[in-house]
């Protein structure tokens, strides 16, 4: 495993702790119950949220696994997004989507209805990586 993949794996492992250990963040997501897909390069991670807590992250691929919405980007894009002060264009998932560096797909209602929460969950590794 190369260094970047190792960092990504570590971030995903730590994500439940980063989210569930933040009471205000859990409170913001208290009405969200869903499984969304976070894709890093070709590797899917199925993130199951229950009342704002990350209940489970299943590393895929898993055949016929359903999900509500998906946020997909490359390893490099996620690592750039997780810098303490990301460079312009990498600082927001919608900026990355506008430039084609990420895609946001599927049933967007749970995403848009909980947008601050989901963006903060996806940016949570920023606290670990810094730089």
């Amino acid at each position: 495993m190369d260094k970047m993949s190792h960092v990504i794996t570590h971030c995903i492992e730590q994500l439940p702790g980063l989210v569930n250990g933040n009471p205000q963040l859990v409170w913001r997501g208290r009405f969200l119950n869903t499984t969304f897909l976070m894709k890093i390069d070709s590797r899917p991670y199925y993130v199951t949220i229950k009342e704002g807590r990350i209940e489970d992250i299943q590393s895929g691929p898993a055949l016929l696994r359903s999900w509500s919405f998906a946020v997909k980007a490359s390893t490099q894009a996620w690592l750039k997004h997780w810098e303490t002060f990301p460079e312009p264009g990498w600082h927001d998932i919608f900026s990355m989507a506008k430039t084609g560096q990420a895609s946001i797909e599927g049933d967007l209602h749970p995403l848009m209805a909980n947008l601050r929460y989901v963006k903060e969950v996806l940016a949570a590794p920023r606290a670990m990586i810094g730089g």
């Binding site: 600082h91 998932i93 900026s95 601050r116 963006k119």
Partner: peptide, 8 residues
């Protein structure tokens, strides 16, 4: 949703 969109 407006706030969360433009926050970026």
């Amino acid at each position: 949703v407006c706030s969360a969109l433009i926050s970026g």
